[in-house]
Write a protein that binds this DNA or RNA. Sequence first.
DNA 1: TATGAATGAGTCTTCATTCAT
DNA 2: CATGAATGAAGACTCATTCAT
Lengths: 194, 194, 194, 194
Amino acid sequence: MRADARRNRERLLAAAEEVFAELGTEASTEEVARRAGVGIGTVFRHFPTKEQLLEAVLVARVAELADRAEQLTAAADPGRAFFALLDAVVAQARSRQTLSEALAAAGVDATAAAAPAKARLRAAAEQLLRAAQQAGAVRPDVGGDELMALMVGIARTAEQTAHDPELQARVSRLLVDGLRPAQRGSGSAPASPR
Amino acid sequence: MRADARRNRERLLAAAEEVFAELGTEASTEEVARRAGVGIGTVFRHFPTKEQLLEAVLVARVAELADRAEQLTAAADPGRAFFALLDAVVAQARSRQTLSEALAAAGVDATAAAAPAKARLRAAAEQLLRAAQQAGAVRPDVGGDELMALMVGIARTAEQTAHDPELQARVSRLLVDGLRPAQRGSGSAPASPR
Amino acid sequence: MRADARRNRERLLAAAEEVFAELGTEASTEEVARRAGVGIGTVFRHFPTKEQLLEAVLVARVAELADRAEQLTAAADPGRAFFALLDAVVAQARSRQTLSEALAAAGVDATAAAAPAKARLRAAAEQLLRAAQQAGAVRPDVGGDELMALMVGIARTAEQTAHDPELQARVSRLLVDGLRPAQRGSGSAPASPR
Amino acid sequence: MRADARRNRERLLAAAEEVFAELGTEASTEEVARRAGVGIGTVFRHFPTKEQLLEAVLVARVAELADRAEQLTAAADPGRAFFALLDAVVAQARSRQTLSEALAAAGVDATAAAAPAKARLRAAAEQLLRAAQQAGAVRPDVGGDELMALMVGIARTAEQTAHDPELQARVSRLLVDGLRPAQRGSGSAPASPR
DNA sequence: TATGAATGAGTCTTCATTCAT
DNA sequence: CATGAATGAAGACTCATTCAT
């Protein structure tokens, strides 16, 4: 029976993510139940409050990103690794509109539920940041707080431009370029060698 | 009585802005009425739909920014003028959380009502951008589309960090620095001389 | 100034009739004002209550019919005159959907305002009825009460079939035929020589 | 739980019929809920729209009449059977003021929901009509369209005179007498031997 | 444990009526 | 007298949450 329950939980989470991404946070709980193929009662058994359901979705988002960050921690090129994390942020935002809300929750809100995932993400991200800075790939005057806030900004902006991938890429590059050291050689060429 | 009506309209707009900033877009029309000190019927006389009320608020926001941009158009130093516009975006976002929604509406939505204000903002912003680029203060590979999207991103991020002005300033600088030309002399110093 | 006021009253009455016929009794007073080209306040100055406005419209309807009935009183052929009144009922119902409500009000309700018009209509109609009965054109076992109720029924039914004039004519004839004497000669032909 | 739901649906339908008959079609949904002893939400769960609730009531009315008509189809005396149907119309109208609106809906509107009941009523009524005509009890120059329209007229008129059963009976007889053949024997006696 | 019917507070919106100009 | 802005009660409808089955 536990297996059944767990499967329902997964289905609900997936459905909720889909629904909230599609219809926004104001979508009804009933719609989530329908999409998950369960009764309304089941939703409330698993997530006693709509808020808790939303929270669970957002936590899942952040956790994915934390996974990715921890994974990148083992990469060879620190600069590449760091910017790959930012790419992941953009990529997630592209597909799911709930990401920025998730990140916002992780960065600002002190929701108990989000805390662990947030902590993991922050730890790994800071590690990537420091390594990249030591390698000279990122400005030295950037700290963890800025990084977290920046990730939110990047995600929000990426969502905003989700309709035009070309534009999205250009804008994301601009935002990210602010992190690079002022000076990367010579020329007057723009600063995105990637 | 026209005077009375106009005053009420102003009051309503102000109250609506305040309420939506404070409680989000989902705040009730009744709350707006209460805050404005008028009956519910008065709100609907002036703005026949909640959507139209919201629209009016957002348009006002964008219009303010457009005013500022047009004003900056006459400034002496093109680089300074351009970045001053971005400062204005941050400043607005600091005080009112509805700005980014307003900008999003202006940049993406094709709301008829927002169109004129949006057009003004874009025209002035592009003029500032081009001048700044010619003066070598901004990367040449940035266009109007990116600029509009970026303004949304800056506003969103600024809102996110509204609780910590220090952090907000640092993050905003990072975002903005992505717009500067890669190269401004020598040193390895970070790129925000301001 | 009195002339002005009277003209406004006429315009309002005309507009109200039009509006109520078109949109039903639930149409808003504001719509009536708009159609009459006056302010809302003016409507309420002339008719302190929506109910009174409606009443006035209905009374006007009944009064017209009473006029017609009184006029027919002077006709040569009593049978013809009587059935001409019923024709007038159908004709009115054809053009204005408010008639049956008006007649209903006149027949059943004891609205003070409707009383005089109702009384006139009834007096004239009964006179026509008695004359027609004496001429052998109408069943003798029909009284004023039945006649008034029947007029309502005819009007209601006529409204119901307003979309199909052909059908309306046939049904009206059926209803009216019930009033003719059972037997007027021989044949098995139906009883509508008209 | 299905049992519970069904019982509530019945209660709602009954309450709605009562309420609409008493207070008219403009009665509030809330009143229906109160009368049925359920919460407002329950009304809207069963009938997602006020219109649908009304429709359901009207359909039920027409269906009852259709039942009666079909039942009469098996009667021995065709004339008696036919006029018994008209009696049923009057009887229903006596107790419930919503009947005529129901019949109107069935006769004129093309509401999808009412269609089946309407079709049944019309089929049975026409069968009764034809049989009565063949038996010489009803004028031959009457068709289904007139019959349906006439039923509406009868119902409307019956409602109008609901306050005075005596008068109602007399008026109904008049209306119905229009359907009898012109010639039913001899005398100058009025034509309602029943 | 899953289900979905029931609940009712809360939302937007309409409209008759009042009243300051 | 006319105007039309203001008012607020009332109505249809939604939705998170509870609970009987």
